[in-house]
């Protein structure tokens, strides 16, 4: 053996160093996952629908327990919800009393009638009528969100709407009526612009793959609706959609914040969105800089250059706005935007 002893020691140290290097990367690099995460996710996925069907359960999540172990969390509207499991498959369960998740509070009526404000008959809510579409029952239809036209209602059958096709669609929405809180019967009668034609039910689950919160009313009666925004808006949308691409300059006109401008900041987004009864998940969404506030749901997000429709606004936070890609919305009903070139 001609190898000197120092060489074999150096070789051993080199091997030891190389072998341990990945461990140090691990320690400083990716997050350390709680044990049992895979099982907890699988259990949540398998049992959420059944859990959400139980009275008092308002949501589920995967979280970390006090011992650092991944757990399935069950959120309840009140203490003393009985009969909940302590384990789901092999995952431990933690019950947390969150109360019901509350949507944005209803503010005072502005009393201002704008052409594109709209809402459903059943609930004292309001949103925005984003665009006219065609063909709907051989005539024009008015596009907005399902939660604007059909309400958020209860969560029967795992969906959040309870509106019925044929329900009156009102303009202005009941929040904006002035005779009395949420409108007098006479005021509601006078506000009818159409009837609910179709909506896409929203699946209510944190594992749901909702893509659109959309509904269409067909226009009836003497009270016409124009395809153009009020004078302080962007005018008439184009009937030719544009795909959402990052940094695209966009704008919208809505009931609450009027005309606002921003850019597309995220595409292909997956988001949790809170409705009256809890949180659900949407996929393939478009995110823009903040464009909106409560009451702007249903606004059409269009390009600043040419007013080409990009997305149907339905949710947001103080810093971001979320819309459904317009091609998915139009495709769900087989309609096109009634607009300019």
């Amino acid at each position: 053996m001609g190898t000197p002893r120092w060489a074999s020691v150096a070789l051993f140290l080199a091997i030891l160093f190389v072998a341990l290097a990945p461990l140090s990367v691990l320690a400083g690099g990716p997050p350390v996952e709680p044990p049992g995460l895979e099982q907890a996710i699988a259990a949540q996925e398998a049992h959420t629908d059944a859990l959400l069907g139980r009275a008092g359960v308002v949501g589920t999540a995967v979280g970390v327990g006090a011992d650092g172990q991944a757990v399935v969390k069950i959120y309840t509207s009140a203490a003393h919800v009985t009969g909940l499991p302590h384990r789901l498959d092999s995952a431990p369960v933690e019950v947390e009393v969150t109360g019901e998740f509350v949507a944005q509070s209803i503010g005072e009526s502005s009393g201002t009638e704008r052409l594109i404000i709209s809402g459903g008959q059943l609930y004292c809510t309001t949103g925005t009528l984003g665009a006219l579409v065609t063909p709907v029952n051989g005539t024009l239809g008015a596009l907005s969100n399902a939660h604007v036209y059909a309400g958020q209602g209860s969560t029967t059958n795992g969906t959040v709407q309870v509106g019925q096709n044929g329900d009156w669609i009102l303009q202005p929405g009941r929040v904006d009526m002035t005779d009395q809180a949420c409108g007098s019967p006479q005021e509601i009668d006078n506000a009818v612009i159409g009837r609910l034609w179709q909506y896409v039910p929203i699946k209510f689950s944190r594992k749901a793959n909702n893509t659109v919160d959309a509904a269409i009313a067909w226009l009836t009666g003497p009270k016409g609706v124009d395809n153009t925004t009020p004078p302080d808006g962007y005018g008439t949308p184009s009937s030719t959609p544009a795909p959402a691409v990052l940094n695209l300059a966009v704008q919208k006109y809505g009931r609450t914040t009027g005309l606002t401008k921003g850019t597309v900041t995220g595409v292909n987004a997956t988001v949790f969105v809170r409705y009256d009864k809890g949180v659900t998940r949407f996929v393939k969404q478009v995110i823009t800089s903040a464009l909106s506030g409560g009451g702007d749901s249903g606004s059409l997000i269009v390009t600043q250059a040419g007013n080409h429709p990009v997305a149907l606004l339905f949710a947001g936070s103080s810093s971001s706005t979320i819309g459904n890609p317009i091609d998915l919305v139009l495709g769900a009903f087989g309609v096109t935007i009634d607009g300019g070139p």
Binding site: T125, F272, V273, S317
Partner: peptide, 11 residues
């Protein structure tokens, strides 16, 4: 990014 929670934007 701190977006805050997202809510349906009816009123």
């Amino acid at each position: 990014e701190e977006s805050g929670e997202f809510r349906a934007f009816d009123r």
